[in-house]
C-alpha cells in the first residue's frame, strides 16, 4: 500500500547529497514504499532544502528495526552528551 502517512518537520543543519553539502531546512519521515531497499515498506527519511530544489535531498530507507535502533542511538547520543550542548533549544 501507499500509506500516505508522512510527518514533516523543520530542521537546522547540513546534509551531503548527490551534489555535495547543502543546508538542511526541512525533513520528511514516512513509512511507505522504498525506491531502493528490498522490502515492501520501509521507514524513509528525507533531509531537504526545498529552496535549493528537489535534488538537495539526503534519503535513507530503513527496515523498522533499523529505524528504531537509529532513533534510539540518536537519543542515547544526545542524552549522553553535555547537557549544555545538547539541550533542545
Amino acid at each position: 500500500m501507499c500509506t500516505y502517512q508522512t510527518v514533516s518537520l523543520a530542521l537546522e543543519g547540513s546534509g551531503k547529497g548527490a551534489e555535495g553539502w547543502f543546508t538542511v531546512t526541512d525533513g520528511s519521515v514516512y513509512f511507505d514504499h522504498p525506491v531502493h531497499a528490498r522490502a515492501e515498506h520501509t521507514l524513509n527519511i528525507d533531509l531537504l532544502n526545498p529552496g535549493r530544489g528537489p535534488s538537495s535531498r539526503v534519503a535513507v530507507e530503513l527496515n523498522p528495526a533499523s529505524a528504531r535502533a537509529l532513533a534510539e542511538a540518536i537519543l542515547e547520543t544526545l542524552d549522553g552528551g553535555p547537557a549544555a550542548l545538547t539541550a533542545k533549544t
Binding site: 508522512t6 526541512d26 520528511s28 528525507d46 531537504l48 526545498p50 530544489g53 528537489p54 535534488s55
Partner: peptide
C-alpha cells in the same frame, strides 16, 4: 510542477513534502 527535470525519486519526495 513541483520538480521539473528532477530524478523520479527526488520528485516524489518533493511532491510528498508538499502534500501530494
Amino acid at each position: 510542477r513541483e520538480a521539473p527535470g528532477a530524478s523520479p525519486d527526488d520528485a516524489a519526495a518533493t511532491a510528498r513534502a508538499q502534500g501530494g
